[in-house]
Nucleic acid binder design. Sequence first.
DNA 1: GATGAATGAGCTTTCATTCAT
DNA 2: AATGAATGAAAGCTCATTCAT
Lengths: 217, 217, 217, 217
Amino acid sequence: MPPSNILDAIIAQSKLSKKETAKQQKIVEAAIALFAERGYANTSTSEIAKKSGVAEGTLFRHYGTKENLLLSVIVPFLKESIPFLAKEVFTDVNPRNYKSFELFIGALLRNRIAFLNENQDIFRVVLKELLYRDELRNELFPHLQSQLFFFLNDALEWFKELGQLKDLPNPVLLRLIMTSVASYLAVRYVLSPNREADDDAEVKTMVDFITGGVGKD
Amino acid sequence: MPPSNILDAIIAQSKLSKKETAKQQKIVEAAIALFAERGYANTSTSEIAKKSGVAEGTLFRHYGTKENLLLSVIVPFLKESIPFLAKEVFTDVNPRNYKSFELFIGALLRNRIAFLNENQDIFRVVLKELLYRDELRNELFPHLQSQLFFFLNDALEWFKELGQLKDLPNPVLLRLIMTSVASYLAVRYVLSPNREADDDAEVKTMVDFITGGVGKD
Amino acid sequence: MPPSNILDAIIAQSKLSKKETAKQQKIVEAAIALFAERGYANTSTSEIAKKSGVAEGTLFRHYGTKENLLLSVIVPFLKESIPFLAKEVFTDVNPRNYKSFELFIGALLRNRIAFLNENQDIFRVVLKELLYRDELRNELFPHLQSQLFFFLNDALEWFKELGQLKDLPNPVLLRLIMTSVASYLAVRYVLSPNREADDDAEVKTMVDFITGGVGKD
Amino acid sequence: MPPSNILDAIIAQSKLSKKETAKQQKIVEAAIALFAERGYANTSTSEIAKKSGVAEGTLFRHYGTKENLLLSVIVPFLKESIPFLAKEVFTDVNPRNYKSFELFIGALLRNRIAFLNENQDIFRVVLKELLYRDELRNELFPHLQSQLFFFLNDALEWFKELGQLKDLPNPVLLRLIMTSVASYLAVRYVLSPNREADDDAEVKTMVDFITGGVGKD
DNA sequence: GATGAATGAGCTTTCATTCAT
DNA sequence: AATGAATGAAAGCTCATTCAT
């Protein structure tokens, strides 16, 4: 997997900020909250400094530029979120443990919902900035796709063997499924937040839709 | 339907800028291109002025504020795009003319694809700004939803009568269908532009997915 | 009387705008009102144009510059207000007609109050701009002083002959009297407008003060 | 004495800018000089920055807005100038130490002349802005008046007891005296600066006028 | 003569970044 | 390491003035 410029930067950055001091922790927290609330461009470094209780200079001592701070905010999130890498998800939602595709997709959705419940702010930041930053997107998406493919290809094969999936090419299946999941999450957490959600009902609806569409057989 | 603040502004704006001079045309074109390319916040009024070949003052003489210019860019697009109002779409894609839900959804998709092919830049601007501007979103979405409902409710009933739709509540059906369509369009025109598309194949895939999901019956 | 730069301009200006058209009348009226309300610097030519119902270009066609418009506003007022020139005042308040200095000063005060009641706005403009424009002041004051001297010297002599004035040099008397009158008018019309005034009582108080001071004999 | 909005701001401001750095000192000095010379509205922040030898940003870092800088210029002056509050004036010019009203008023005049000799520029700024800013005036004048009354009422009673003042209501006496003093100072320091003054002679003239008017007994 | 669209210099203000302490 | 005062480029916006119609 060829490492790309931005991802390099991300990784380098993530290594640099490994030993996060208490102050850095504060800074990142404040940055997440503010970026999520009013976007990267509309948040000033002085606001971040004030909210995190450090001097503005400190912020630049640690992160060099505002842009870099953004990356430091996004990176750890992405590392967990391009998630299928992460062992936890692997373990939590191992397709082989599920007898039906419905159950598997339901579990996946619930897993991501649980994750986003804990990370709404960062999700908002990431989504907004992905829309704005072609570069970031162009570097991230292929990476994401290949990771997803690496993880889900096996699952798709598995459920095809079980006779539960249409005979479409895996990339197509992947795209349809992930787009549905992603757009559901985007609406739920970014476009219409503040809305109360009945998780069970919503997951069921989504699972039914992904597997069976809206048409009557 | 009570008119809301921002929509009022939008409409007022659209009326004011009725008689668009050549210069105004130039300004709006430049603004669309630049906003789409690097976002509203990262585009300066001086860049817009330079690109459109007018003095910066001219820009403010016509639009008063940069924000207002944004609206002037978005408005005409929205007026065509909250489209199901527009007689054209009504006429072009009248559900009663379609024997099957698949054909109807296919036609709808093709109609919107044709529209967006002509309006990619503005679509990008609108989508990005919708993500950033809670206010705009909060005012627009309910409006959009009610319009969609007004138009599609009938269609849904019609295809239910024909026995082609699952017996889900119309709002749920609407949400599932429209989210699918919207996310397809968002990916195609904003997240992964520059990509070549085989319209026929893609529409077919989407229609099949929306009607039948990915599961094998 | 050596003509000075600004006064030249004033006079030239006043000649140019001799044949005041209806539009010019409108412009001047609007300018007076706006300058008085929020000062010269805070009034834009476009506001004046709008308020007077003419195009902004028309305004410049007639007056050339905003500064010049100010002069056109101030000049006719000054011509009546450096007033002792004006035959009316001469006639109205001819010192020889007054048996006592008190009566004379009282009449003078009443005359100026009557005048300012009709010209409050312009008075405000003039006073404010006199404060701001050293040039205007430096040219105007000597002129004013010589005019006042020309007119009042005779009056002072007259009342000295009648044994009603202290034996101070006329310039000193002039300064004391005129400063008192002017500061009374300034307070009344500019610093504390909106205040109700009992003319008779106030004039009497001022006259008594000017003639007798506050000390007990 | 209920504190008013602007005065609150003034006081808050004066507290904030307690610890004036060398740069702030420079800025304020430059601002005073320029505001006095050509007025607030005709002075640009860039001129102030250049004259004080700091970057324009520095100016805003300290004072936030140009308006606020004006207040920072006016405030300390007012605090000394609504003076009769200040213990110094109380002590310097204690009416009980003066055997005659003439002597007292003379001392008061000399005290204020001495003060203004040191503060001519600021006095000019204050006077000009008072004329332009209704709000400031409306808040300041009642405050000023009540302070003066508080201080001088006693003095007036004292000199009435000594049989040296006419039996006019104290507010009237106050108004006549203070208007005379103020207009003398306004003429001397604002309307006709650059003029040489023979303090002794002028003070004597003013004192005589205030106590005895221009009329022969 | 009258218009008002167009101009562009100049305004106040913001903000990422630097650097002496 | 941490600070925060200082920077200055660039932002959005205003407005007196011009000029083609």
